[in-house]
Nucleic acid binder design. Structure first.
Lengths: 140, 140
DNA sequence: TGACATTTGCAACAAAGTTGCAATCTCCAT
DNA sequence: ATGGAGATTGCAACTTTGTTGCAAATGTCA
């Protein structure tokens, strides 16, 4: 059986409400990362804008989704895999891809972020790697 | 002699105006990347908010500055080095560092972004790498 | 089922970004 | 050096995005 929004909520010890379920299902049904606006367009008829903000924030806090910064000044969100949380600390280690043609953002789960060596004095906690280019569908 | 804002404008074939010079000088005097707001705080008494938006956009278009996406939903800008533009195409190849403690964002010019191999079908144009951690000054 | 805590929607607000237009400034040819 | 064409700026009005407080509604668990 396919994973449902409700299952994820139980796992994270969150109360199960219509908005949370629906928003999670939108993520589960999407193959790409979503901006706040994408979600708003899909369910602003059902839920208040404020609820969407708060729900996304809750999901971030619980490590259910992670945020992907993009150069276009629009943060997008995508579901985390289970392995994403290591000993209470959220940890993404895959590369994100942003298509310049269609604007889609996706997690390349199979591409691991390479390590880098920082200059003396800097301590490293997290690496974020976003690749721009053309995706499969948009390839000329 | 130190490079001045006006020199950069000439190089880029932009007309020399007070706002462009001043904003470039702010970048030249700063050792870290700046958000729109940082610039606004420094010169909103002299220039209109709209002018700052338009000036930053012009600099981006001409490849004078590059934008750095951060997880906090605040794009920052930093001056490009001359080598940044290769055959008309802007090309950053260094890592950016964002300090979780003081929030400073800097270009680590000496740390080159490692290459990654994308899955079949994807074409790569640009890579953006932002490292989070603690900077020299904030180190415990 | 019922009480309690959590979540939601509403309203009002604050901040960030955009657009059109008239006034001003730059640049270049004379 | 000057004048005019074209680019740039400031202003005003507006849209979009994000935040906060509070009362009503909903979910959880005994």
């Amino acid at each position: 059986m396919k994973k449902q929004g409700a299952d994820i909520l139980k796992q994270s010890a969150l109360s199960i409400t219509a908005s949370r379920k629906d928003i999670l299902d939108i993520f589960l049904a999407s193959s790409s990362a979503l901006a706040h606006q994408d979600i708003e367009l899909k369910c602003s008829d059902k839920f208040d804008r404020v609820t969407i903000y708060r729900t996304l924030q809750t999901f971030l806090d619980k490590g259910i989704i992670h945020s992907i910064p993009t150069t276009e000044n629009a943060v997008k969100y995508a579901l985390c895999k289970d392995e994403c949380i290591v000993s209470g600390h959220h940890h993404d280690n895959h590369v994100h891809f942003l298509c310049d043609a269609c604007g889609i953002t996706i997690c390349l789960e199979e591409v691991v972020v390479p390590q880098v060596k920082l200059p003396k004095g800097y301590s490293l906690k997290d690496i974020n790697m976003v690749v721009n280019g053309t995706c499969k569908k948009c390839k000329a």
